[in-house]
Design a binder for these strands. Sequence first.
DNA 1: GTCCATGCAAACTGTTTGCACGCGC
DNA 2: GCGCGTGCAAACAGTTTGCATGGAC
Lengths: 151, 151
Amino acid sequence: MSESIDHLRDTFRATGRRWTSQRRLILGVLEESDIHLDAETLFVRAKARDSDISLATVYRTLGVLKEMGLVEEHSLGEEHAHFEAVRDQPHYHFVCLGCGRVIEFDAPQMAQIEQSVSKREGVCVTDIHLRLSGYCARCQETMGGQCGDQE
Amino acid sequence: MSESIDHLRDTFRATGRRWTSQRRLILGVLEESDIHLDAETLFVRAKARDSDISLATVYRTLGVLKEMGLVEEHSLGEEHAHFEAVRDQPHYHFVCLGCGRVIEFDAPQMAQIEQSVSKREGVCVTDIHLRLSGYCARCQETMGGQCGDQE
DNA sequence: GTCCATGCAAACTGTTTGCACGCGC
DNA sequence: GCGCGTGCAAACAGTTTGCATGGAC
């Protein structure tokens, strides 16, 4: 999502998709809030600027952007999906069960894991979802430091 | 779920929960189909033996079993949840996008990843969800072997 | 007898879809 | 002008919940 809006317009055109005001708006919202949003939040922020936009359009646009490889869908909490603009290198998520904070991290060891599974099982891996959950430093403090024994 | 039914009954009693025929039935179904089931499938199999059992009870029982640490919930496909009996060592999942087959694997490198994230970010990890997706050996054959370039 | 667990149906959440209209091309 | 994209509302899937009855203890 770091490429210019003009370049995106061309990408849309090149794939026979239309460059509509709603799609521009949704891309704008995604661009300026580079965190993980759910569809509802994205909808609210878009609606603040164009009160006529509908939630269905948000979902349909997110579907198109996924097809185009511009956004990824994650199930960060267990509930509803979150979306994020695709970045250069892959990265993974830690989700705090206390405050919901999301921390991103890289894990070079994933390449080994992927390789060894591919070789051992003869499969071909196209996608990796890794999510750690637990408690962030701040939430551990407010809980008294015991970790792992809460359920 | 390898412990005997009697031991489970005691665990229920000890935590002030009642040992009902429905819970026994659901545990029985889980035990003899040690794969990953969704709530609906579990419901159908249970209903085959007790036509009065309700889907709500299946969900409520799965909730209790999760609380007790006896089953885990996974989002294997992107759609609905899957449940599986908790085993000794942690393990992860590969899901085939072609046929839906689920392959389990272990990944000792996960311990390093967990440690390095914990140390670097000061977080405490209580749970790890790792899911690879792609195409299994069989599905790659029927597709002609090209891997990674399908959407 | 007490009170948790159940069955039923209705509610609810997140997401998708059918249809007529509108706008990008 | 053609046809995709949109708004709206209704449909949908999976899951949860309120309430009265029934069964475990």
